[in-house]
Write a protein that binds this DNA or RNA. Structure first.
Lengths: 243, 243, 243, 243
DNA sequence: AATGAATGAGCCTTCATTCAT
DNA sequence: GATGAATGAAGGCTCATTCAT
């Protein structure tokens, strides 16, 4: 009954079931908290299956990480149209939010990533190289365009991190958010609102930084933003001359 | 008197050494990864000391959390001068950054907090009630003032989270940041630069949101950003609805 | 087939060795005094074997109890011939004595039972339901027949306990008996003598109770003993009411 | 404030409280199950008090055993009047039952004794020498008198153990009795009924043994005891009329 | 005389991993 | 190729005991 084909099928099926179950477990309790037995039981596989298919627990984890990363990228890719930078930023933010917060991905990909960033494992290097750095590059280009050609690389980086920080906050700190503001759901509508807000906030922030940084007169850095903001803000901003 | 005093001294000394060592260990490897044996060894105490002084590992962790929280609050309190909102925001951001990133506090307080937010334990509720919610309230008032009196509570919350997200990003994702941009140190100068940037970015962001969201005062609206944001965001949304 | 068989054989062998060793250890030092390490060492198994085969120490104990109970029942079953009640009582006493005192069973079954009755564990309920109550029922019928049909249920119970008490005394109080009367061995001959004695004593006792308690048949009453016992007992009662 | 007197008073008080609390705890969970901390806490004493007053846990246990034994003996002594043997047996049984089953003594003395007999400690030798053997001797004399002067010592022993076995059964197997016959309380009335039953059963049993052993006519064993009892009992009855 | 903080051995249990089948 | 029984290393926790005060 067991042909080579069925064996192969079974082989791949078991492997897939392990990856599937492992993603759930790692997301729920982390690498350390996960037990090989639990994963195998959920996957309907033998205790030794992890050792067989992935060498050991760490190998399985690394594979899960890569798999989830690929899956998230292909599910919600960053739109690559030749829009203006502002639209590109919006697209970037939206796809990023969806990858880490959309219900079907947050439970696995988002939470695993959050854990990996707080408590990095040996798999982080690979993850940075294959998934994170390319994203970082895309964002760098978008922000660079928004800031104007002569922007200081450090400023570009800071602005990029301001954008990403806003996004990841909802992924990393969800337990706290749930406790502080219990009613707020993060369904499709909530994600839309979040996308709109973070995009608007970030565009304004970047443009504020751009306006302040353009004259590149360090002594006036605190004041210049003030002027740029003046059109949209109150006179009280004068007092921000020094924080 | 002397007897009681010296006993108390010894008692307090051991207790303190345990809290000290435990903070290090919990920050390094998390609650789960930490072993009572390791903590006791570092504290120069017996294996049973944790049980004696704190009941069990969880009790010790809870105490470490509370202790670190108190210590951070007293070390870098939020300045409470009667400044204008913008300056208040700067002060809030600065003290927050110092609490979670300053070299002497990040290694313990910051990393422990980051872990707790990603993988909450039973101690999180207490932490939210005693430390996080008060901070959240302070920020709410500052942002509310910056947005103008009639601001939607949801908008205030979103802006607050944009601010906090930027800050915590450097705390939560430091392993990634170190890999992406190896050179960037976060010493006092780096913290200053960060404070300046996040404050400027956030002020611009909040004011941008205020201008866009408050059409009641047409004369002060920053019209163009609003449109750009809206259009770019919705374009992005349409394009990524399904890949 | 061979594979499964040998695996099962190994499985059963380890399991059996554990049950075997555990019975010894539990009999010697009780549930509390027994250590999983000791049991596993004696069984030639790993420390984790108990966890694997029986869940935990309590699970192993419960299984040992059931196993010993089954073994004793099958080794020395109560003879179920259609003899007269007196012979039935003798058979009951003999088989009971053999189960708890015969050299090959006392060391394990008898002592474990004695412990369980003095310091019951969660396993006692199951034991009562499966092993003890059936025996109690058998004895009740025998005693009932000996007492005559109209015997008071409470009297039947008391007589039954008088019989069982005599038997179990040699099991429960053996350490004391050995100290009081060092020479008395309980080998096969000793067991025979015990069987004869307890049977004779009990038959006489039951018939005495029957004669005293059944005034409905005056011709057969042992009138005087009844009175003597009553008076002597009450005299004793009065005299010791307070010293 | 602390005079020598008050110190001594405190000393004795602490010692007494420890003995008191220890008796409870040992009765409840046995020597092994008892913890020094629990005993000290219940006694309102320091953790080191046991070590100080009794050397160690075993020393405390030994003292508790002796104390309880003395207390039981003085509370319910065996009546030593010059009654006839039947009345003496009744008195012996009654006082024995009271010592091990009366509500105020069973909870401590009875249960501790039961444990000690099943799982003897080093303290058993002393207990046998000081408390049990004297009782055994008393019973031997009573039974000897009931059996008639020429009784075989082994037969005397067996009959004595039949008596004691019936008594101790209610002490040793109470957990089982409670499960088999849930309603049966062992209050004062219950103890009276038990005394009456065991005395009657034992007298009949002993007389049956005596009758069987004297004429050594096996064929009449079942009938002869009955008659034998009648005569000896009537004599006994006359003799106990006094009081 | 009495305290209570500290000790270190040891227990039960869990876990990732291996190996004979 | 796949199984699952067995392994042995820790881990958290409890306990009787000691010792400086």
């Amino acid at each position: 009954m067991r042909t080579a084909a069925s064996k192969n099928a079974s082989h791949a099926a078991t492997r897939g079931a392990l990856l599937h179950a492992a993603a759930d477990v790692f997301a729920e309790v982390g690498f350390r908290g996960a037990t090989v037995r639990d994963i195998c039981r959920r996957a309907g596989a033998n205790v030794a299956a992890v050792s067989y298919h992935f060498g050991d627990k760490a190998g399985l984890y690394s594979e899960v990480l890569a798999e989830q990363s690929r899956l998230a990228q292909s599910r919600y890719p960053v739109p690559t149209g030749d829009d203006d930078p502002a639209a590109q930023l919006g697209g970037f933010i939206r796809s990023f939010l969806q990858r880490v917060l959309s219900p079907e991905l947050h439970a696995r990909h988002g939470r695993i990533m959050a854990r990996e960033m707080v408590e990095p494992t040996a798999a982080l290097d690979r993850l940075v190289a294959e998934a994170i750095r390319p994203q970082s590059e895309m964002l760098r280009e978008i922000v660079s365009a928004l800031l104007g050609g002569a922007a200081d690389p450090a400023t570009v980086r800071l602005c990029g991190m301001s954008v990403v920080g806003q996004i990841l906050f909802y992924c990393h700190c969800r337990p706290v958010i749930d406790r502080l503001f219990p009613g707020a759901e993060l369904d499709a509508t909530g994600l839309d609102r979040l996308t709109t807000h973070i995009t608007a906030f970030s565009l304004a922030g970047i443009r504020g930084i751009a306006a302040a940084g353009a004259p590149s007169r360090p002594g006036q850095r605190a004041r210049t933003p003030h002027r740029a903001e003046r059109s949209s803000a109150s006179v009280a901003a004068k007092r921000t001359v020094r924080t």
